[in-house]
Simulated assay, not measured.
Amino acid sequence: MGPPELSPLFRPLEVRSLTLANRIVMSPMTRSYSTAGVPGLDVADYYRRRAEGGTGLIVTEGVAIDHPSAVDDPNVPLLRGQSALAGWRQVTEAVHDAGGKIIPQLWHVGPLWGAMGKVDPAVKQMRPSGVWGTLGTTSYSDEYVAWAQRATEPMTDQDIADVIAAFARAAANAMEVGFDGVALHGGHGYLLDSFLWAGTNKRDDAWGGDLERRTRFPAEVVKAIRAEVGDEVPIIYRFSQHKQQDYTAQIAKTPEELGFLLGALVDAGVDILDASIRRFDLPAFEGSQLSLAGWAKKVTGAITMAVGSVGIGKSLRDSRIDGMAPPLDNIAALERRMTDGEFDLIAIGRLHLADPGLARTLREGLPLPVFDRARHEGALH
């Protein structure tokens, strides 16, 4: 890596009221250390250490919105209730005291309800059309897939209104406890994504059918959040082509379709498009080396963020199946893409687990940390 003053990783960035010291983002990663949904001092210390290490922006693990079927893991943090909100105040204060910036990723798992734990059968699962999704390449167990593929009741108009309101309440709570913006998990087959994907959205009403109607629900969620938080607060939206139901799935077959879908979200109030793929440098469409984040920037003009296997030889899914690969120093390739303006931010997950001071490590040109799945994946270092 070149000198910090020449590296695109260490250029500041302003997004509405948010000023970032550099372009390095801690990617959201489920940790499941918030007992009964309440983040404790250990969670605050975990995020504080990354802020002390110089990371420009921390995006938290997925946080459950105020809805009964939002998240099915009791140790995933909530963004509702006095105890959880008090816990998050400790987190934001710790990060801010360390000079960092932090944004929560609001989460509703939608069709993937039940994938992380046992669920109450009396609670209605939120699926646009009552289907789990078109089954393809997946890492889920046969037992879960068989259970999940049963048909359920499609979301009603009242269900849709309730979830939109729940996202808005969560955004308001995020502002109350001192977060610096709002992020939405709109990828991987979860609820927001399930409206975009034809494999889960088979509706023929105002909420589904053609591309325009499939964008309506996530766009309305963004609009509700923008109305709640005002004009100065940045909104990040994570999207993906792949789904956990099928890693080969796509929401957009062409750059034009991608531009239509993402343009609706930007028009609704999204500031940063977080393009989630398994490797940040994978070409998104045939005939071009441009990544998904690169195409998102090209077709919308928005600020975009790439993610996926920075400093690591295999994607997380592949490493779980085939074992870890040796570290891969792809920082120079990352910097070239950012220097060329392909995307604006880089989200890094696993190396942040291995090294809380990752930003300092990169700034000083030290050897990349080695991610050890056995040591780092399930621990709160």
Rank of each mutant, 00 (worst) to 15 (best):
P356E: 06
V266W: 04
L13R: 11
E232I: 00
A224E: 06
V299Q: 09
T19Q: 13
G199N: 10
L380H: 10
P367C: 03
P77E: 02
R214S: 11
L265E: 06
A252R: 07
T19G: 05
L328S: 05
G186H: 08
A224S: 14
G189M: 05
A268H: 06
L292G: 09
L106Q: 08
L79D: 01
Y47G: 03
K223H: 02
A333P: 00
K118I: 10
A249L: 02
S17F: 01
L290Q: 15
V266T: 13
I102T: 04
I331S: 02
A333S: 13
Y190E: 06
F195Q: 11
S129C: 07
W207S: 05
I348H: 06
T304L: 05
I251C: 02
D329V: 04
L191M: 10
G181T: 10
V119I: 15
D318E: 14
R216T: 11
P369N: 12
R203E: 12
A333I: 00
R23C: 03
S309F: 02
V145P: 11
L345A: 04
K297R: 15
A174R: 05
M324I: 01
R213S: 14
V229C: 02
G294S: 08
L292I: 07
L85I: 02
D142M: 03
P39K: 04
A252S: 14
A170E: 03
G114L: 05
I346E: 00
L380M: 13
L362G: 08
T35W: 09
T30C: 09
D271W: 10
P128S: 03
T361W: 09
T137H: 11
